[in-house]
């Protein structure tokens, strides 16, 4: 197992390197010069050259690239090229907890709704309950998150005044305050995934309930709920975990968009502002972190497989 983990981490490093390289060259292929934009008012190209030199951006691209890689290996993500030149790691450290809070909350909401909904749907197949769950699932699936976000704001913030419309409060300011700021964006991005996972649980459960070992469990005289939870559910969970892993990663991508609707200064806002400003180090750093989360969630999924299914062992 530890050997397997080591191999996977090595693979993850290669993926991260590829992402870093791709982002590095793509950014430089995009037209636009941040320094010329900065000195637009004065129109002094000498000042722009000065700044470019200070950031090492006057070197040939391949020199910049190797310098950048060397930096990253040392854990240095560079500094923003704007304003007071804040280190990228500081910017990320500030914005990342917001995004991860939102993602984890959205994921938790999605899973806690989806699993019971999917189970009920499977157990009462073709009943009114099942059709109801299916209808809501497709509704949730077909609503874009930013639109749902706006609907939620109109209803619960502007209309009923129950929740703050925008902004973020850290967990340290109290769980209630934290939750009241995050619940709407979390529902907005979590809903489509709740729908997907619920459908997945339903079909996977129906598949498992048809198997012979469930028939065997019934022939032993076991209770219905015991068979469902102890015999069927763990088997049904195996394909669902794959989808949950993908969902976790995509929820982060969803967070990036919805953060803007709710004016939460998370990684998504940082990223979008960075791209608009051609703030190379910030964009590179943010994408590197996001890709790290992707790789990590995949690894967690694979480890979870082995925990649930004894047939899967990593040597």
């Amino acid at each position: 197992m530890s050997k397997y983990l080591l191999r996977r981490l090595l693979g993850a490093t290669v993926v991260m390197w590829a992402v870093a390289t791709l982002v590095f060259f793509m950014l430089r292929a995009v037209p636009g010069d941040p320094f010329l934009a900065m000195v637009f008012d004065t129109g002094d190209p000498a000042a722009a050259d000065e700044m470019r030199r200070a950031f090492g951006l006057d070197d040939p691209v391949y020199v910049q690239y190797f310098k950048y890689l060397l930096q990253v290996i040392q854990g240095n993500l560079g500094t923003s090229i704007y304003g007071s030149r804040v280190p990228v790691s500081t910017i990320i450290a500030e914005s990342f907890p917001r995004t991860i809070s939102l993602t984890v909350l959205a994921f938790t909401i999605a899973v806690t709704i989806a699993i019971p909904a999917g189970l009920i749907s499977a157990l009462y197949k073709y009943s009114a309950l099942d059709h109801g769950v299916t209808f809501v699932a497709f509704l949730g699936l077909s609503m874009p998150d930013f639109w749902l976000a706006i609907l939620l704001i109109i209803t619960f913030a502007a209309g009923l005044g129950w929740l703050p419309a925008i902004g973020y409060a850290p967990l340290s300011s109290g769980f209630g305050t934290w939750l009241s700021h995050l619940i709407m964006p979390a529902i907005a991005i979590g809903t489509p995934f709740a729908a997907i996972i619920a459908r997945m649980v339903r079909s996977s459960m129906l598949e498992v309930l048809k198997t012979e070992y469930i028939q065997v469990a019934r022939s032993k005289g076991l209770m219905r709920w015991y068979i469902l939870l102890q015999h069927a559910f763990p088997n049904a969970l195996i394909p669902v975990i794959t989808v949950m892993g993908i969902a976790l990663a995509l929820l982060m991508a969803g967070a990036v968009v919805v953060e803007n609707v709710f004016a939460i200064k998370g990684l998504g806002r940082v990223l979008i502002q960075g791209i608009l400003n051609r703030d190379y180090p910030v964009v590179q750093g943010a994408i590197l972190v996001v890709s790290g989360i992707f790789v990590l969630s995949n690894l967690v999924v694979d480890v979870l497989y082995a925990a649930i299914d004894p047939r899967i062992r990593y040597e």
């Binding site: 198997t211 012979e212 070992y213 028939q215 065997v216 469990a217 019934r218 022939s219 032993k220 005289g221 076991l222 209770m223 102890q230 015999h231 763990p234 088997n235 649930i308 299914d309 004894p310 047939r311």
Partner: peptide, 23 residues
Amino acid sequence: RTIRGRRISMVFQEPMTSLNPVL
């Protein structure tokens, strides 16, 4: 349920699929 497995039990056709793979 008080009969199944207790008074009458059953052996199925497919031993490869009649045991639960995760238990």
